[in-house]
Amino acid sequence: MSEDKRKLLEVLHLKKYFNQGSRQEVRAVDDVSFDIYEGETFGLVGESGCGKSTTGRTIIQLYEATGGEVLFNGQNIFKIKKSAGRNKLRQEIQMIFQDPFASLDPHLTVKDIIAEGMDVHHLSGTSKERENRVYELLEEVGLNREHAGRYPHEFSGGQRQRIGIARALAVDPKLIIADEPISALDVSIQAQVVNLLKKIQRQQGLTYLFIAHDLSMVKYISDRIGVMHQGMIVELADSEELYRTPLHPYTESLLSAIPQPDPISERKRQRLEYQSKKGNGQMKKLREIAPRHFVYCAEHEVTEYQQKYKTIQNEKEESRDEIN
């Protein structure tokens, strides 16, 4: 699907170590590479501490990378020196945060919160134009213009997350990094926000990096998914493919642990335990097992995984035949 599409973001061997060199060194992100194509949603999933949020924050330069490159529109963003270039970048990549309560400054009105990016990048125009743009954005995210003069604490979690989205849209971004944007919301509100994100993406051709631990939502919203574990991407594939034929044992264990809202399948569900294998000096990296399906492994494991892939494919075929 995205073969003919242009790469908007290329992350190459990105590393972020905290307390580098000291005894408490934490390799939060350890050699992560992936591409995001224009207009797609790339999901990054994993459990807490796997480095998914750090990856997002390093891309948007809240953290300084320890190593590696990030190319945005083909340009290495760590090497942009001119302030005009940096400003443009800060406008084109926007972030939506997890906590709808901590991500909006409680002392500003909704209008000032949404317009802040416009003010910083001198896009506001006259105060009338600024106001109208805020109204437009509020309506776009399903709020109304009367909300402009209010303060964040007057809104529910879902509404606040809409304000966070409006704020990101205010500066016409190309890429939005959504860091767990729905995990703090109630189930019925999550669906509203996800639908809104999808609608905006359709209308404006936005590209998303969607970071989450909730695998079922990630599957729904993403075109491709990277599964992170201990600072590395262990498996990367189209989302349907990943859920149908998980190959890496960590992905399998993660998928098998999700409880489904379905009592019958819950009674049958078998959880798979993951034991991380020590790499005995083997050079491990992401290798393509099936078309567009990558697994982090050593050279000699490739055939094993290919075999596994075929077995799962065959099983699926058979069970489909049974149903029909």
């Binding site: 529910s156 879902g158 509404q159 189930v187 019925s188 509100i189 999550q190 669906a191 509203q192 996800v194 639908n195 999808k198 079922s216 939502m217 599957k219 729904y220 349907e240 489904q260 809202p261 379905d262």
Partner: peptide, 24 residues
């Protein structure tokens, strides 16, 4: 109904998620 339907369980990739409008 709304709670159950707003979870993405089925293969509804290109469909909208069912939502409960408004807030509590």
């Amino acid at each position: 109904w709304g709670l159950i339907c707003s979870m993405p369980t089925l293969d509804l990739k290109d469909k909208e998620l069912y939502t409960i409008p408004g807030s509590p």
